[in-house]
Amino acid sequence: MDIRAIIESGELELYVMDRLPAAETAQIDKLRVAHSELNEEIRRIEDTLIAFATAQAIRPSANLKNKIAAQLNFADEPAQTVTPNTTAPETKVITMVPPAYRFMAAASVALIIGLGASTFYYYSKYNEANSNLLAMRTEQNVLANQVKYQKEQSEAMQQQLAVVSDPTNKAIVLKGLPIAPNAQAVVYWNNETGKAYINSTNLPALAANEQYQLWAIVDGKPVDMGVVDKDSVFNIAKDVKGAVAFAITVEPLGGKATPTLEKMYVLGNVTI
């Protein structure tokens, strides 16, 4: 069995990802016991994929923990429990009051025990440091993600504020037509630059194979302004100039070249 060839094949990566057929998994289970080289490579792949997973970390919402706890059975109740090893296992202090002639022998024994204990101690410390590092990496990712999210939110809000407060932008309210009396949308549009934004948070839910599409009426003809997701605040529509009205129709996914007029949900005229 060529161990090197197995390592290079990519099979071990699939093994760690739990994506090998059962027979091949069983074979590697066996081989890793006999070949430390293989075993070490598997551990390295595990470390890489663990780091890959922590790079994706997302902090769950706060209520989830209790929801999960409520579904589990615990042997103990919240506060009191077996304490985790907050520090490494204790090193035993060996008190010896040996007679003088046994001193040398005793000292050697103590030294050996001491070495063993400290090796164990440092090994535990090493493990502890390793898992602390992992936890910190995860934490760092979670925080970085939160910062990114907040930044996106704040940028989006600034952009929205800029659009709304720009006096050259016109707000056109699109009102529900008889087939969707409660529907409503708002278009913010600048006739000079042609820029348009659509707030579509008050449109009813659609079937999964349908999508909203925005139209501008220019010279009596509908001009495609692009598809609009329901619930999007300040979706940027295509540019248009000289519009006299805006309307939203329901179309198949991806939109159409011409509007389906009988499925027009909202309409609003541009007032001068």
């Binding site: 790079a55 994706q56 970390a57 589990l72 059975n73 042997a75 103990d76 985790p84 992992l134 995860t138």
Partner: peptide
């Protein structure tokens, strides 16, 4: 041993990565 504290630790330390992978 079904220790509650172990669950807390497990959840605090591992749930973000697990959720990240699930979400992706």
């Amino acid at each position: 041993g079904k220790s509650r504290k172990a669950f807390e630790y497990l959840y605090d330390n591992y749930s973000p990565a697990l959720l990240g992978v699930i979400y992706n």
